[in-house]
Design a protein around this nucleic acid. Sequence first.
DNA 1: CTGAAAGCGCTAACAA
DNA 2: TTGTTAGCGCTTTCAG
Lengths: 346, 346
Amino acid sequence: MKRTPKRTIYDIARVAKASPSTVSAALNGTWKNRRIRAETAERIIEIAREFGYSTNLQARGLRTARSGLTALLMPDYNRFFSNLAEAFSTKVRQKGLCPVIVSTDRDYDEEITTVEKLASYAVDSLFVAGAACPEEISQYCHKAHIDHVFIDQPCSLAPSVVTDHKNGARILTEEMLATRREVGDKERDRPYFLGGDCHLPATAQRIEGFRDIVQQQLGEFHDDQIFANSYNPDYAEEQIRALYDRLGGLPSTLFVNSISSFEGALRFLLTIPEEEVKTCSFGCFDFEPFGKLLRFPVHMIRQRHNVLMDQAFALLEDKAEPGTLITIKPELYSARDSNSNIIMKK
Amino acid sequence: MKRTPKRTIYDIARVAKASPSTVSAALNGTWKNRRIRAETAERIIEIAREFGYSTNLQARGLRTARSGLTALLMPDYNRFFSNLAEAFSTKVRQKGLCPVIVSTDRDYDEEITTVEKLASYAVDSLFVAGAACPEEISQYCHKAHIDHVFIDQPCSLAPSVVTDHKNGARILTEEMLATRREVGDKERDRPYFLGGDCHLPATAQRIEGFRDIVQQQLGEFHDDQIFANSYNPDYAEEQIRALYDRLGGLPSTLFVNSISSFEGALRFLLTIPEEEVKTCSFGCFDFEPFGKLLRFPVHMIRQRHNVLMDQAFALLEDKAEPGTLITIKPELYSARDSNSNIIMKK
DNA sequence: CTGAAAGCGCTAACAA
DNA sequence: TTGTTAGCGCTTTCAG
């Protein structure tokens, strides 16, 4: 059954009446500098084709101390990271390299051991998205001489590319205010911010942007307009219910931070009449295709996964300085652009 | 800056005053059979720890003609495949191996070249999900002596595990019928099937299951209850609109095949009053968390990605025969179980 | 223009 | 109980 004992360059060399080194050079393109006769090279390449030869990448890797593997480390396969993974995969394959994607479940130890394992395979470079412990990872990579870059969650010891949360929040807030209908009640006409964790940088920056615009356009802002103690959908559900009860209705403007919080809010919204829901101008700092298909308008912010990835590759190629931080303004998906029968101001 | 010229077993051997082979054995567990003194082994392991030693996996791979890499090939990162990828990743890491996930965009050539590349890395085994060309992939794997298994899209030349579409459709149809409210109009009370491609096996099997139950419970069935010429959302949108116009309202039971078709249907549903939408019993042969958060009941079918993956691993471990086909009954997410204010029969 | 030979780091016979 | 040794398949000086 061993019909294919796997050909090597030695087999080819024998048939081509050339030496292994010549074959090697011919096959991997180095033959121009080795001044090998084009004719010889072509002959070798032809034989290799006939043999169905393919380079043993482990052998090459052992010899060159590289591997042709490019790795992406990420927490899980939620929509955003899945999109990142897809962009990554495409890019890496275009370069003729092999993508290795490992998810580590936001687990500190898993992240470290995974990086160690990847180093053992001599991956050429490492992309780290949404890391739990960026600094440790970066330290290890430096020690192991692995080029690396951070995405979404920055690291002070390496180049990073992240979403511009503050400006994203500004844009979203502006759009919410531009499309809202005031109800004439002071309390209900104040914009509210729901969900996320204000102790985490991403949420904190979004709150900043939100506050900026609110203050600028409405003149005043109070901290009790913010409910940001958890990403948990249950938290969002509770808070919006409480708010609804207190105000005697929905606020006219609600900034929902993340899809999970939006899910919680939606669970509450199911319990009140559709007409009421339609009176509120919603913004969601995250993107979910189904958001366009609800029976009320929702503006959404989408992280540009492709741009983030492109920039990450660029940072690596340019061998950017450790501290380098690139921020990418996210995209607004305005409910105004949906072709739905949603009701808005005017 | 080359502070870490990377330790090898030779470095350890020197310090431990042992031979490289002893070190090797001690470090990879083979030392029991090699009858190495426990004391020696421990000493070696200790030194390795101090050195921060880690095995060069490319060298080991070259020597053993294996790699410790386990690969998953899939079309893209949609929800289902992302879930598969996550299950895969977790399982592989548990085994101490390294997952390699490559998406090939449903491209025939990409699939083949990717398999070739993976073979060049001597991956230990290959999981292929939703393949465009299963047979070719399998042939190549056989030639290259790579253990492989197919998921979702079966292959006659290798073991496969797929979803039981027919029974899934039965379950879904039963649930839709059990929860529907008839409107008293003969035409509108016939169940309809929307979306998918009846020339593809998956859709064909779902139609079979749908028809089975409809015939069994309602006695009659006509082919014009089926609209299955495309997965495109636009197609679904058009067809449901036409149906609505013809019937003078929604049917009381609608089986929507796949999330993309559901999206199309939803676009139409946005254009009619909520009260009308609530009169229809919807089923979707796919799972989407937001489906539970709509303002009307939707029963959903979810492929058991974890079970599919578990079975795929089992097939490989048992070295299952080439023709082996395992079918997995999918899961029903009944709208009856959602804690929403949806309106149903009774 | 081309070949010989060393060696990447590891494992597994085979000796001892 | 341990050491010696021969490669795995490739790339890369160095010598022609």
